[in-house]
Design a protein around this nucleic acid. Structure first.
Lengths: 248, 248
DNA sequence: CAGTGGTCTAGACCACACC
DNA sequence: GTGTGGTCTAGACCACTGA
């Protein structure tokens, strides 16, 4: 990062040029995990206001090139983690090979958009199973799985009133049904305060929101809203495996 | 939007509270396409600096709630467009039902990451087909399709030196091969200057980058890097159709 | 405690769209 | 022209981390 001054000729915004310069420096002069100089130092070095420098850093963080932590500093981020989110016809959440960890479960009314997906009336309480996904030592995603109890076979016992144990019961009941397909959507969102806490980010951080609808006998029986850290995750949709089914 | 002042009690940042208030206002007091007051007016109304207001607007725009256009103003955005990006085993790009429009084609060396995907040496020139996707009157995505000519059957004629016609020729040759599967990845990126121009956004705008690798006979024969406007698009992955194959 | 990134201000000027 | 959002400055203070 020998550059100490910008000499700008194009009518290109400074922050964009700055981003270009920093990208080149990251590619050539820094290694993963290495700390950058602090923002005041960098701004001075490039002869811009700190706010302008921050515009460039914001983008590099969005692109997963940098990792910033308040009170700590800015470091070069490792490459994004690939997370497989292929729809699998023949499996339910919580089946074999599912790396998600159930953390909690309690009945609650789903958001309006989820109620529509599930084709249940608004404000109908459903089971809400909360799960999280850890990859490479970091929580990379958080999920709310909404399951209307009416669609499930009866429980084989009294069941826990709440907590992970209740969630396991819901998933067990779900797996007794014959899977009837899934559909999925991915869009950009921003983390709520609670999601931010779980994902170790600030509220409002960009996230990839994956909405999945699970069908059985042609009817929606569950809907999942999974929130992935956009800075550290790459969602992969591999081809269907060669064997048609491995989890009945 | 009767609120004229914030009365903040929590140690919650102003811009976040502002975003909450604005979200509620958008839900209840505005309709799609309606213009908001300008930024100076809004900032004054809420008693904050314009930069603070802009932090809130930036997030709402990221979430696809607002649309801002320099020199024009800020309006309430319509719901995101769903775009189907399901991997389809049995089809090539440019096949039936493909809504993409080929705009140009010329040989060029692919980016290093694409060369790795294609398993060709770096700096090997390949055919680069450029296509774009229009939905609801708006260009929502832009694609570069990289095809090493060595993997293709020979052309049935001299072919155009460049332009859409050359692209059609490449896609025709590709379709003579037997499709052997695809894999896909989705991640967050930011628009280059050129992509921004095509998508009618500013450079650096958030985009969803979909990378697809096409296989034939177990070998990669093409790779596509498609860039979708993150503000206006929701990528959908429907289930595979019930019939195992309909395009051979 | 000192040092970091996060928030916020009150201005200024620029680029662009529309009249 | 006028009015809009986009960029930029030079400060200030806050929240958090780790020694």
């Amino acid at each position: 990062m020998g550059t100490t001054q910008l000499d700008q000729q194009q009518p290109e915004p400074k922050h964009r040029h700055l981003k270009t310069v920093l990208t080149a420096a990251l590619d050539t002069e820094f290694s993963v995990g290495q700390a950058l100089p602090n923002e005041r130092e960098l701004a001075a070095r490039f002869g811009v206001a700190r706010a302008t420098l921050r515009q460039a850093l914001d983008q590099l963080e969005l692109e997963g090139r940098l990792q910033r932590r308040r009170g700590v500093g800015t470091t070069v981020a490792p490459p994004r983690v690939g997370v497989d989110v292929s729809p699998r016809h023949h499996t339910w959440p919580g089946g074999p090979g599912d790396a998600w960890v159930t953390t909690d479960c309690a009945p609650a009314a789903p958001p309006a958009a989820v109620a529509r997906l599930l084709e249940v009336p608004a404000r109908t309480p459903v089971e809400v199973v909360r799960r999280s996904l850890v990859a490479q030592g970091q929580t990379v995603a958080e999920e709310h799985l909404y399951v209307p109890p009416a669609a499930l076979p009866p429980a084989d016992g009294p069941g826990a009133p709440h907590g992970a144990e209740r969630g396991h019961g819901v998933l067990r009941r779900l797996r007794r049904l014959e899977p009837g397909g899934q559909d999925r959507a991915v869009e950009l969102g921003s983390a709520t305060a609670e999601q931010a806490r779980l994902l170790d980010r600030l509220p409002g951080s960009p996230v990839l929101v994956v909405t999945t609808r699970y069908l059985a006998a042609g009817r929606p029986v569950a809907a999942a809203v999974a929130t992935y850290r956009a800075d550290t995750c790459r969602l992969t949709f591999g081809d269907e495996p060669a064997h048609p089914s491995g989890a009945d």
